[in-house]
Design a protein around this nucleic acid. Structure first.
Lengths: 183, 183
DNA sequence: ACAAATATACCTACTAATAGGTAGGTAAAC
DNA sequence: GTTTACCTACCTATTAGTAGGTATATTTGT
């Protein structure tokens, strides 16, 4: 992996573990054994770095959508929720959860990028739920987007709160979401 | 209101709007037209301030419990969820949501206080749900604590995500939680 | 093929601003 | 005369960010 990608990966992990305003360029430069100025060579500002991180997640989302496109709706949702479980086990929460918490400390440009990632995620979830409902896999009685909102906010909140209570609570909630859908 | 309480209130608002690691003592001192050192007179460290803020919320929770103790379970839940709506409209999220996001940047002492506030909130919600379920108001088929977890994480996530999407999404989710309970 | 030009990927050394925090003083109230 | 509620003046560490240098590749012109 090249230095640029390493910086993005480390920044991503730091944001999702400690939050945007709790990490500095020196956290990254120390870890990579390079100097502070070298990070500015790749990313002139911290804003430029967080935008690159969001854009990486936009690409990851597209790859995810592509990867699960042939699966049935139930498997799509299970895979989607699995993405959140994996990183949770290492103390990290999702990028959406972490960044929306710091939303008011961002420039308009970062806010716009975050909106795009959020809407892309929400739209995929809405479409997948609709598909599964029409095929008789899922059962709920409300707008598809509303159900998508409930699921995603439940996951974000669960990632957050289970830091304080118990990591196992996260898995309990995740199972409950799936059971509620296919009941 | 005395200066100490004003500092706590301002710190509380700043944490819930921008996050713990995005506010400084000077944000407070400028607003109150006092000097930085005067805040240290009341709170020797930033840690001491955040602990005082958590303890204020512990007291507020007790007052809330007392205030709604005579109401029926449905009204208790509606009032509980209203607390989250009120501050949300001013851009602030709940103290639980904001602080659990910064959990790994806190000292053990702050983490412990946050755990107490979280558990006290969760326990009240669990008991209230159980009461309402036994009296036939609420309908769900899982442990009471699990249902409490789902509700509270859903609200925390909704506060967060609706910053990015649309404030009205928060109210949609809140209504869905109530409808789901009494359906 | 070979030298010159240029781009890459860092570096040293610095800056201004801000962070949380401290030492010690003072004026007024109790 | 002690406590309260501030103050001035400072400190050290860290922050994001900049200016300009250098060694090593890579590309280009002859």
């Amino acid at each position: 992996m090249n230095t640029r990608d390493k910086i993005i990966l480390l920044g991503d992990n730091l944001i999702r573990k400690r939050g945007y305003n709790a990490f500095s360029f020196s956290d990254i430069s120390k870890e990579l054994n390079i100097k502070n100025a070298s990070i500015h060579y790749y990313f002139p500002t911290k804003t430029a770095l967080v935008i690159a991180i969001i854009q990486k997640h936009l690409i990851l989302l597209e790859k995810f959508k592509e990867k699960v496109s042939e699966k049935d709706s139930v498997q799509k949702i299970i895979k989607f929720l699995s993405v959140y479980s994996i990183t949770k086990s290492e103390g990290r929460i999702s990028i959406l959860g972490s960044l929306s918490n710091d939303y008011f400390t961002f420039t308009a440009e970062v806010q716009t990028e975050l909106k795009i990632l959020t809407n892309n995620t929400l739209n995929w979830l809405t479409d997948t739920l609709k598909e599964g409902r029409q095929q008789g896999f899922f059962h709920y009685d409300m707008e598809d987007r509303k159900k998508a909102l409930i699921i995603i906010t439940n996951i974000l909140g669960a990632e957050q709160l289970s830091r304080v209570t118990d990591n196992y609570d996260f898995h309990k909630i995740k199972e409950a979401i799936i059971n509620d859908l296919i009941k």
